[in-house]
Design a protein around this nucleic acid. Structure first.
Length: 436
RNA sequence: GGACGGGUGGGUGAGUGGCUAAAACCAGCAGACUGUAAAUCUGCCGCUCCUUGCGGGCUACGAAGGUUCGAAUCCUUCCCCGUCCA
């Protein structure tokens, strides 16, 4: 007999176990689920993320999705923004001490984080917390007490510290504090379950120990596999540049997903779509048997991922555009548009157009003389880092205007007349440049 | 505090007076090939100017000075990192 709306624990567990790496310890989770089901009291499940960059990417969504699974089952999802811990820097996977973020950077990042997170989580049902709420208030005495609960030898067991020690690399003392302070989060939140990527296992285990030291029941640590980045090698991360930001344009995301190695798509299906393991296995079989072209399987994946963030329509359009550009080798239906307007003899305003009408604030103001050449124009449009880079691409045949390859870096546009140009830069970038 | 070793381009890391915008590798970019894949091959890979040339100028090897016709390389001071000793 139950007096709650929760599904049977076994059923919940089966649902939650999709695509996870490890549950430490699994028996505890079962017990907690059973108890919650009996008492009707939801589990407190949290995910802590440090706002070290302004955007979240697909890698973050792996753990977010798991948190959502708990939310969907009726448990309390707590999204913890590590606005304090971000200023220390998580030493996980770091081969060196990172420069600390300032309070300003962290605050700015926190803002953009939430909006993005709510693309997945239900804002109404999510408890959002910031760890500065309590970590800012800890006294030195309390910090010392906290540190007294852990041993140096155990701290140094972790791989990143050990290898830095062995390689004569610096380790700052404050880095040792990271897992302890985030453990304090778990103490304050009185969490039943914490979700993290596998690389967070060490931190999560410390959290469990510290909770016990503070007289609480240890949380269950649930780890998720790492999402491999676009290079097919290393974990997806902003600093490695192999990431897919969830706010990126649908077309961008589509292209990026298509560029991952075929083998990798299965792990993406598992970690960032709602497909069940059975469905994925069936797809895989189809591809292996030649019934489904791997490219088509990958296109489906891309479409599903995009639909999650931008809706079905945007996803379909992205797919159509992709076919058009890469299969039919045509310019896409939609592309970035820029308008260059000559204001006076010497100044020019560069605008980026949104759709056909909306004109964003002047994007840049430059001198007209400077914009005579394409190399300069591309810099002004923010499409290349420097004129030298533009020149290189041109000399290598990667630059087209209206379908004609232009290799001469000294060529430019005629200011005398208004016109519109379709510019292709490299194999992916298409721009429409309107000159008035 | 003492002794010793070290700080080079996005990363690893060679280079110990000119031939060095700095080897090699990785990452990145472009082209070829393809399924926009991946892998592979070729080229590029500081900034800037123009007459786009194996062209000119500028900046760069922790920081600042100095020696020299010439310095990443030698000297001085300072900063930073590591090891060992205390």
């Amino acid at each position: 007999m139950t007096n709650s709306n929760f599904k049977p624990a076994a059923e919940q567990l089966a649902y939650l176990k999709k695509a996870i790496a490890e549950i430490v310890p699994e028996a505890d989770l079962t017990a907690k689920l059973e108890k919650s089901q009996k008492t009707g009291k939801p589990l407190r499940v949290y995910l802590g993320v440090d706002p070290t960059a302004p955007d979240i990417h697909l890698g973050h969504t792996v753990v977010l999705r798991k948190l959502k699974h708990f939310q969907d089952l009726g448990h309390t999802a707590i999204f913890l923004i590590g606005d304090f811990s971000a200023m220390i820097g998580d030493p996980t996977g770091q081969s060196e001490t990172r420069p600390p973020l300032t309070r300003e950077q962290v605050d700015a990042n926190s803002k953009t984080y939430l909006a993005q997170v709510f693309k997945l989580l239900d804002p109404q049902k999510t408890e959002v917390r910031y760890n500065s709420e309590w970590l800012d208030k800890l006294t030195s005495y309390e910090v010392v007490r906290l540190c007294g609960h852990y041993r140096l030898a155990r701290m140094l067991e972790r791989e990143d510290f050990r290898s830095r020690l062995a390689g004569n690399q610096p380790i700052s003392v404050h880095e040792l504090l990271y897992p302890l302070l985030t453990a304090y989060d778990a103490v304050v939140l009185q969490s039943d379950v914490e979700i993290g990527a596998t690389e967070q296992k060490f931190n999560l285990l410390v959290h469990r120990d510290i909770q016990r030291e503070y007289g609480l029941a240890s949380e269950v640590a649930l780890t998720m596999p790492i999402l491999v980045g676009l290079d097919g090698q290393r974990k997806m991360s902003k600093s490695l540049g192999n990431y897919i930001g969830i706010t990126e344009a649908p077309g961008e995301i589509f292209g990026k997903i298509m560029s991952i190695p075929d083998e990798l798509m299965w792990s993406y299906y598992e970690l960032v779509t709602d497909r069940t393991p059975q469905e994925i296995a069936a797809l895989k079989k189809e591809v292996a048997g030649g019934a489904l072209h791997p490219m088509d399987a990958k296109m489906r994946l891309a479409q599903e991922v995009i639909a999650g963030f931008h809706g079905e329509d945007a996803a379909r359009k992205a797919a159509e555009n992709f076919q058009r550009v890469f299969r039919d080798r045509q310019a896409p239906g939609e592309m970035k548009q820029f308008k260059i307007i000559r204001m006076t003899e010497n100044t020019v305003h560069v605008y980026e157009l949104q759709g056909n009408i909306t004109i964003t604030a002047p994007y840049r103001e430059v001198s007209a003389a400077e914009l005579r050449k394409w190399t300069k124009i591309l810099v002004a449009l923010g499409q290349v880092e420097s004129a030298s880079e533009a020149e290189r691409v041109m000399k290598q045949g990667g630059f087209e205007v209206d379908g004609v390859i232009i290799k001469d870096p000294s060529s430019g546009i005629n200011w005398g007349q208004a016109g519109a140009y379709i510019v292709k830069l490299g194999k992916k970038k298409f721009l429409r440049v309107i000159v008035e």
